[in-house]
């Protein structure tokens, strides 16, 4: 496959589970090592980065996960500060001595997801939607250029899903971030994306703006006609 993603675009990748969405996303920050091919960012081939360069690249790429991947027993603030790890010296971070500016940044990130007052709660005391917002704050705290979101709403109920997607879209617009989101719900994709990429068995079967999407497009992506299951349903807002 061959994809070019311009800065500031909100891209949603849709496809059945197993279509290769997660792998595609994880190749970008090399949580999965691509076996062949090139990934170029500003002309640099990501696949050839050494370990230190890779860590530096990863600080520019925020990621949020289906299962939030927070440290449950740590405080919310500490979870968000983890986003600064790539910018902080090892010894300093092991001692927990983050610069004051980092702590301020972390609190600002929490404020943007309306969770500042939860900064000192333990992560396992939050609801699912709150956890995902903490995860967004953690990614923002990296001050990234790109944001990857792997099924960010698959563990959440429909109304919360919409809230999370709205937050994500608003914040990324404000910061001018390039965003790649994996989703398998059609309605969410159509509602929030600038551009949709359809994957099926590791191949791109659709690539275009939302306005080009028709019912036939989805039949191609899912390999059959659309069933009610493929919609997330509307949230009450």
């Amino acid at each position: 496959m061959n994809l070019t993603i311009p800065d500031g675009q909100f891209v949603v990748i849709v496809g059945l589970s197993g279509a290769g969405k997660s792998t595609l996303l994880r190749c970008i920050n090399r949580l999965v090592e691509p076996t062949e091919g090139q990934i170029l960012a500003d002309g640099v081939d990501i696949t050839r980065l050494g370990e230190a360069e890779l860590r530096a690249w990863r600080t520019k790429v925020g990621m949020i996960f289906q299962n939030f991947n927070l440290v449950n027993r740590s405080t919310v603030l500490r979870n968000v500060l983890a986003g600064r790890l790539g910018h902080t010296g090892t010894l300093r971070s092991l001692l927990g001595l983050f610069p004051r500016s980092d702590v301020e940044l972390a609190l600002r990130c929490l404020e943007r997801v309306q969770l500042r007052d939860k900064a000192f709660s333990r992560a396992d005391q939050l609801s699912g939607g709150q956890k995902q917002r903490v995860a967004i704050a953690r990614a923002l705290c990296q001050e990234p250029k790109i944001l990857l979101a792997d099924e960010p709403v698959a563990s959440l109920d429909p109304p919360t899903s919409h809230l999370i997607m709205q937050d994500l879209k608003r914040i990324c617009r404000e910061d001018g971030l390039t965003v790649l989101v994996n989703l398998h719900f059609i309605d969410l994709a159509v509602e929030y994306a600038d551009r949709i990429i359809g994957l099926r068995a590791g191949e791109v079967v659709f690539d275009g703006p939302v306005s080009d999407v028709t019912e036939k497009t989805f039949e191609e992506i899912y390999g059959c006609s659309i069933r009610p299951d493929d919609f997330r349903g509307r949230g009450d807002r």
Binding site: T75, L77, G96, F98, R100, V103, A119
Partner: peptide, 14 residues
Amino acid sequence: MSRLAPRAPDRGLF
């Protein structure tokens, strides 16, 4: 958590 505790002038932060 103790390590995140601020020195006195930082109090306004939280």
